[in-house]
Nucleic acid binder design. Sequence first.
DNA 1: ACGTAAATTTGCGTGCACGCACTTTTCCTG
DNA 2: CAGGAAAAGTGCGTGCACGCAAATTTACGT
Lengths: 218, 218
Amino acid sequence: MTTPRPGLRERKKQATREALREAALRLAVEHGPDRVRVEDIAEAAGVSPRTYNNYFASREQAIVSAVTADREARIAAAVAARPAEVRLADAVTEAVVAQYTNTGEREQKALLLITAQTALRDAFLEAAAGIEPPLTAVLAERLADAEAHTARVLAASVAAAVRIALEGWLRPVQSAETAERHTAAGLVLPSGSLPDRLRAALAPLAPAFDAAEQHTRP
Amino acid sequence: MTTPRPGLRERKKQATREALREAALRLAVEHGPDRVRVEDIAEAAGVSPRTYNNYFASREQAIVSAVTADREARIAAAVAARPAEVRLADAVTEAVVAQYTNTGEREQKALLLITAQTALRDAFLEAAAGIEPPLTAVLAERLADAEAHTARVLAASVAAAVRIALEGWLRPVQSAETAERHTAAGLVLPSGSLPDRLRAALAPLAPAFDAAEQHTRP
DNA sequence: ACGTAAATTTGCGTGCACGCACTTTTCCTG
DNA sequence: CAGGAAAAGTGCGTGCACGCAAATTTACGT
């Protein structure tokens, strides 16, 4: 139903997107994030530079997207998968934590990279805003009869909270030297516990979720 | 205390910023938003194009900033001005509504302009995110002993809600032709009541504010 | 009043994002 | 299995954002 048909066209499109992501990340890791031009990425993916920009609106977006993948969509799916009995606030929190508590070794390296450059950090944080649309849809379903925009506001608030948590998590590493020292010491993860930060950031929103839920079926 | 001294340097800087804003808006109104180049704005403000970019990170930002001015700072100030007895959620809502319930005739014309072009609309919406820092400071003061990040999350949620309200308010006008018809009919404001939309968008967050307030002094 | 340190402005060069028009590929229907 | 519509890829041109380093302006102690 959500997949009326794969279709050759669609598959090729995804393949291109994938190739671009992959090339962007690989080149960024190899030569450093600021020493890779769009032209190089496009060439590595076997596509014209102009096409590259049909897929990504900025160079940073491509690199970050290789790490982020479709995490946002998975969060929404995870929320939808929870039984209707659990507190909505808990369902959302756990879904977010679960999806950000990965991860592969590949992602670790990439995060180090992202931390090192301001433009990449910003793109990474901004990518978290992508939770809003899918999460809005899921929340709207749960809060069925409530006013339509409530779901949207809550979803956007979650996105904001996640952004804040990630920001705080990445902050201590700010400089490239710090990153170096951390790597040397074997500390791959920037600082503190990301799950804790996420929970803390989402906690203040719980009452809003509870109220919305109550309003639906008292 | 916040003004240790005006200083010639600072005054000149503000004058330049003002001149750029003014020039950007005037030229955009005169020739249409997409028919004004950075070079033109800079020249009209008597400054080099490179300097222009020391003040604004994008062409849209300059135009929008002429309309937005320091609305975000005023919202925070308005919240701070309310007596400590009033419900925090109400204080914030009223402050937001008051500051967005403008406005001069000049702003009306500018809004029409902004509505007409996607890039400008985006910049306008993104500008609303500027509420976060000052609002965080004010909220942190009210929620003194609560965990520090609560203020930040709430402020960011407010910013998100405002963005959503503005988005819905601007949506019906999307196309330039629609804008034309509206002007011809004398309807300057895009659609519906902005105050209503703002209140509706902020309402779902009220429980979160209440809970945070309770937590401070039960 | 002078000189030095700091901040601001400016010119230049590089990559980049994106509109537009055109070509190539995929899809669908008779 | 055409053949034409729709969509994706491409080349080109324009304006722009921004790093860098030199020039200019402001601030301030002596």
